[in-house]
């Protein structure tokens, strides 16, 4: 089974390094003996893939940073403060978990257009930053931290912000890391929203770039297409292989229910 699931990755890698005219000669399942880089040369010469990479990194890290800035205080309020309306407000965050933003592209497009933000990098970031899922996940962790710790901290002169910064965030680190990894993986894949929110290559991301590349190079050889495919997946794959354990643990706990 594992061998079957690995076939697509294997094909991407071996085909990316083979010249187009020999791919279908003989048995294409065998890797070529020489490392052929010509496909990558074609890829970079015909589309601005490095710009796409830079944009993707900006968008993905922008989303993550703003998400953390917004959801950590929200999760803190829900976990450790008593206030009127907390129940109803929390339901608003939970409902958002069930409604993927993909469902709301039409109204969101009209909103971004009203703000005059069409075709900007920020337009690809803003709709995702108030993550109900992240708020929910962090609230669970913040709740588990014993009240005595908070009392002790307050006696020592901590206010809410200090308590959050010096005690809760370090204690919740594994969950914050897990959320960050899931967020990076998710938004590296974003396609539909960037597709409609942007239209010029200067701001577009890798996934959109690959989609346009295919249309532009229709009939191009598979070696070139696989080289582009490998290029857009490589950063996230390398990160995954480098941090295997963290990745696996993050996705395992991503479904944690409390």
């Amino acid at each position: 089974m594992t061998v079957v699931t690995l076939i697509p990755l294997y094909l991407i890698i071996i085909m990316a390094f083979k010249p187009g005219n020999v791919i279908f000669h003989g048995n294409y399942l065998l890797p070529s003996l020489k490392l052929f880089l010509g496909n990558f040369k074609v890829v970079f010469e015909s589309a601005p893939f490095f710009t796409y990479l830079v944009n993707t990194v900006i968008v993905v890290s922008g989303i993550l940073i703003l998400q953390l800035v917004l959801i950590i205080p929200a999760a803190y309020a829900f976990a450790r403060m008593k206030f009127k309306g907390s129940g109803i407000l929390f339901i608003l965050y939970v409902i958002q978990i069930m409604l993927p933003l993909e469902a709301l592209i039409v109204p969101n497009y009209m909103i971004i257009r009203k703000f005059g933000l069409i075709d900007t990098r920020i337009s690809m970031i803003l709709p995702f930053i108030a993550s109900g899922y992240g708020t929910f996940l962090l609230r669970q962790v913040f709740k588990q931290i014993p009240q005595e710790l908070e009392d002790a901290a307050i006696i020592d002169g901590c206010n809410h912000l200090k308590f959050l910064w010096y005690i809760l965030i370090p204690l919740a680190r594994p969950t914050i890391v897990a959320f960050s990894i899931v967020s990076i993986v998710t938004h590296w894949q974003d396609y539909l929203w960037p597709l409609i929110a942007t239209n010029s290559p200067e701001v577009r991301t890798l996934t959109i770039g690959l989609g346009m590349f295919v249309q532009q190079e229709s009939g191009a050889d598979w070696g070139v297409l696989m080289a582009a495919t490998l290029f857009i997946s490589a950063p996230i794959l390398v990160l995954f292989l480098a941090l295997q354990r963290t990745f696996i643990r993050s996705f395992m706990t991503s479904g944690m229910k409390g």
Binding site: Y191, T207, L225, I248
Partner: peptide, 18 residues
């Protein structure tokens, strides 16, 4: 684990291509 899980990590666009 890695062999079965990696498809989740790579972008859908890349998956569509291959």
């Amino acid at each position: 684990q890695i062999g079965i899980f990696y498809p989740t990590v790579i972008p859908m666009t890349a998956a569509a291509m291959v």
